[in-house]
Simulated scan of single mutants.
Amino acid sequence: MKKILLFASGTGSNADNIIQFFKNQKEATVIAVFSNNPEAKVLAKAQAHQVPTWVFNRVELNEGSVLNKIKELQPDLIVLAGFLWKMPEAIVHEFPNKIINIHPALLPKYGGKGMYGMNVHKSVLENKEHETGITIHYVNEHYDEGEFIFQTAANIENCKTPEEIAAKVHELEHEYFPKVIAQILKP
C-alpha cells in the first residue's frame, strides 16, 4: 500500500478531503499529518480519522528534525495541502518528484512568496480576471515554480468578492486533488 504524508497549516479542508478519499482504499492511505501550526484545525480533523499528527517549528523544519521524521515514515508521496512555509532544499532534494503542492490559481499567474489563500483571490478579483482555478505541481526550491501536473479552471465573471472566488476554487480542489494524487501513485 502506498503511503501519503500530508503537510498543512490551517483548517485542513483539503487534508480532510484527501484522508476521507483514501480511507477505504487498498491502493494508498494517509499515514500522518504534519503541521507547523499547533492551533491548526487540521490536527483535530486528522485525529478524528485516527491519523497521527506531528507539530513542528521553523527550527525543526530547517535543521533536519522534520527530514529525519519523514525518512522514518518513508512516504511514497508528500502532499502539501495548505502548507504555508517553503519546503527546505534538503527535503526537496531527498524526495525528488515526490512532493506535490496545490495552488489556488492558474500558475504561473498569482504565484510566489505571499501568494496564498485570500491574497491570491483578492489579486484575481482586483485584476478583473474572467477565470481562475487550481494548479497541482511538483515542489522544487522556489515558490510555485515546480513542474505542473494538473490545472483546471472555473469561470468567475459573476464573482463579486474574494470569498466567492475562494468557494469556486475550493470546489475544484476538493474534486480534483485526491484524484490527481491517486493517479500519481498508480504503478
Rank of each mutant, 00 (worst) to 15 (best):
M1R: 08
K2N: 12
I4S: 12
L6N: 05
F7H: 10
S9Y: 12
G10T: 05
T11V: 13
S13W: 14
N14E: 00
N14F: 00
A15Q: 01
Q20F: 15
K23T: 15
T29D: 10
S35V: 09
N37Y: 05
P38R: 04
A40R: 04
A46Y: 00
A48V: 03
H49C: 13
Q50S: 15
V51N: 00
T53A: 02
V55T: 12
F56A: 05
V59M: 06
L61N: 01
N62I: 02
E63I: 02
E63F: 01
V66K: 02
V66M: 05
V66L: 11
L67V: 07
K71N: 09
E72W: 05
Q74E: 13
L77C: 08
L77E: 05
I78N: 09
I78S: 02
L80K: 05
L84Y: 07
K86A: 11
I91F: 03
I91P: 03
E94H: 11
N97F: 04
I99G: 01
I100P: 01
H103A: 04
H103N: 08
P104V: 07
P104G: 11
L106G: 07
K109N: 07
Y110Q: 00
Y110D: 03
G111W: 04
G111Y: 08
G112A: 04
G114W: 10
Y116F: 14
H121D: 06
V124G: 12
L125V: 08
L125S: 07
E126L: 05
N127I: 08
N127P: 09
E129S: 08
T132S: 09
T135S: 04
H137R: 02
Y138Q: 01
V139E: 01
H142R: 12
Y143P: 02
E147S: 04
E147A: 12
F150E: 06
Q151I: 01
T152P: 12
T152V: 15
A153W: 02
A154H: 09
I156K: 04
A166M: 07
A167W: 06
H170A: 13
H174Q: 11
E175Y: 10
P178W: 11
V180M: 11
V180W: 05
V180P: 10
A182N: 10
I184V: 02
P187A: 06
